[in-house]
Nucleic acid binder design. Structure first.
Lengths: 238, 238
DNA sequence: TATCGCACAATTGTATACATTTGGTCAATC
DNA sequence: GATTGACCAAATGTATACAATTGTGCGATA
């Protein structure tokens, strides 16, 4: 169980939004939610407010909330934005220099990914774990609190996370090749940072993020649903 | 008077944070604020939550809020981030093409700024108004909802707004020259967008934002206060 | 037909009492 | 001396009654 009722409501509602149970554009009413979750309006209000802070809900003029709507364009735009921000993070790290431990942590993640990919049956949850660690370390290596904050915001959207859109099960061979290429990019980025090649670090990182665009095409989910913004936000296990 | 008490509390608290009455790092207690504003804890809570959403407060582990702290590094980092985002907006507008009305609105702002600058006594509030309109139009011309949203967030911090750090009263001549240059950059950006020169649009826009860095040096406010994060956030009239 | 305005229901806003959690102090204990 | 645990005060969490607002539909009226 969650510690507080607010936390509980937060988790339940977030899950319902991510899974698509609560579709984009739908308005949420305090009383209805309170009855459904068998708690009072107060923790519901708190949870809704936090969800708005996360970017999952929009506030309505005159009070109230609606589930934020993402169409296909929003998804690709957000991924592109992540690329710009991560590219900037890599550039900052290269220009300003960064903490040695952070860089070493990133290298360690790259090596772990190598191991994961050398297996015949790729453990995707493991890959996802180390991939996330790599990206988190690189983000922090930027040394810019402002940038780190915004990057955390943007990647909190499940489809904009570095490990989103990983696999739909088909085209395994091609998909595996994509992961190998991605880890080569990881290497190139770290090398560029160490060599203080800021331009290279930024451009490779941006290209790296762009791979997520291609992965959108692998989606087995109904593209029509994505177009109109009624698709679940967390399409892949991540 | 404000319509609701929440709104009232929001305005009062925001003002106190911006003006430096509530210093960065200070914790805010619901009961104390409720007594001070002579209202109940409920609207206080709502206001605090919205201020956290705006990025003016941080949530504390275990509940409660503290005023967010900005040191000099944070200020310059945020301005740099704005440059990256605005540069991206200009690039998108150039690459994808943008609404003709938005572009025309931006051109109109440029012309209005010309008029303002031709006067011997520059009306700074007028300049600020048209400068903001220019930047707003360009931001919207990006056509990316994700980017627009983040840009709104970042520029909601008073020191990161396009019209921040405008004038401290000294060095008038040099300052005026800076504004003229800035408007020339405005022109160059719009020309680049019309000619679909995305690279040029991005780089000029980024350079344009960088001017705000230089303006930081003109500040009459105690730099020591900025370093330690105890300076008021709204240093200039804007 | 268009428009104004009233009434009503639905929804959020507010106050307040009470519950729970947290953090710290102090004393007992090992 | 360090650690544990009980206690207390202070702060946030929660429920609930009531107030205020918003939006909508319907009817009166020009």
């Amino acid at each position: 169980m969650s510690k507080t009722l607010t936390e509980h409501a937060l988790i339940v509602l977030r899950q319902k939004i991510m899974s698509g149970t609560l579709v984009g554009g739908r308005r949420l009413y305090e009383v209805a939610l309170a009855e459904e979750l068998q708690i009072s309006r107060t923790p519901i209000r708190a949870a809704l407010s936090k969800l708005a802070e996360e970017g999952l809900l929009d506030r309505i003029h005159g009070g109230g909330f609606v589930v934020r709507r993402f169409d296909l364009r929003d998804v690709t735009d957000t991924i592109e934005l992540r690329g710009v921000l991560e590219g900037t993070a890599a550039r900052f790290a290269a220009e300003r220099g960064c903490d040695a431990e952070l860089l070493q942590g990133a290298w360690h993640a790259v090596q772990k990914i190598d191991v994961v990919l050398s297996d015949n049956n790729i453990d995707m949850s493991l890959y996802s774990k180390w991939n996330t660690i790599f990206h988190d370390h690189l983000r922090d290596a930027s040394g810019s609190k402002a940038l780190i904050r915004e990057l955390i915001r943007v990647t909190s959207l499940p489809f904009a996370a570095p490990s989103a859109f990983l696999d739909d099960g088909s085209q395994q061979a091609r998909f595996r090749a994509g992961l190998v290429v991605a880890n080569e990019q990881h290497r190139a980025i770290l090398e560029a940072i160490e060599a203080r090649q800021s331009g290279r670090a930024e451009s490779v990182m941006r290209e790296h993020a762009r791979a997520a665009h291609r992965n959108v095409k692998f989606l087995s989910t109904d593209v029509a649903a994505l177009r109109e913004g009624s698709a679940p936000l967390a399409i892949v296990s991540g």
